[in-house]
């Protein structure tokens, strides 16, 4: 998971940003590799999805705060009843969606429980 970091204020961004929203033109943005570990801040179990995600439902949508302090919207791969606020999670590489049977397959980051 490659995000960015503002060397001026130290904030890490994933999704990556090319302008620091706090320092703006005074910010100096560099590439930054995130650990892929974090925790669930809030979540919802999606029962009604748009067509390209319908095969996955029900699935767990969540906002995860990474160790580096930045936050992202993602899916947690677990049973709907397993997820809770504060659950530790780690990133995995999964298919995000497939454009039908003939289109592009989009890959990206999702998370799984990281329970010791």
């Amino acid at each position: 998971m490659v995000g960015t970091k503002c060397k001026t204020c130290g904030k890490v961004f994933f999704p990556p940003r090319s302008v620091c929203p706090h320092c703006r033109r005074n910010g100096k943005i560099v590439e930054y590799k995130c650990s892929g570990k974090g925790e669930v801040l809030t979540f919802s179990v999606i029962h009604s999805a748009s067509d390209q995600y319908a095969a996955m439902k029900p699935y767990v949508l969540a906002i995860v705060e990474l160790e580096e302090g930045t936050r992202m919207t993602t899916q947690i791969i677990c049973e709907p009843e397993e997820v809770y606020i504060g659950m530790p999670v780690k990133s995995v590489f999964r298919v995000l969606d497939r454009e039908g049977t003939e289109g592009i397959i989009h890959y990206g980051t999702k998370f799984v429980p990281n329970l010791a």
């Binding site: 996955m56 791969i77 995995v92 590489f93 999964r94 298919v95 995000l96 397959i105 890959y107 999702k110």
Partner: peptide
């Protein structure tokens, strides 16, 4: 496999 897994996701996870 899970719905969102395929040979590419296996390959990436194994390599990582």
């Amino acid at each position: 496999p899970d719905y969102d897994e395929d040979t590419a996701t296996f390959a990436v996870e194994a390599t990582r």
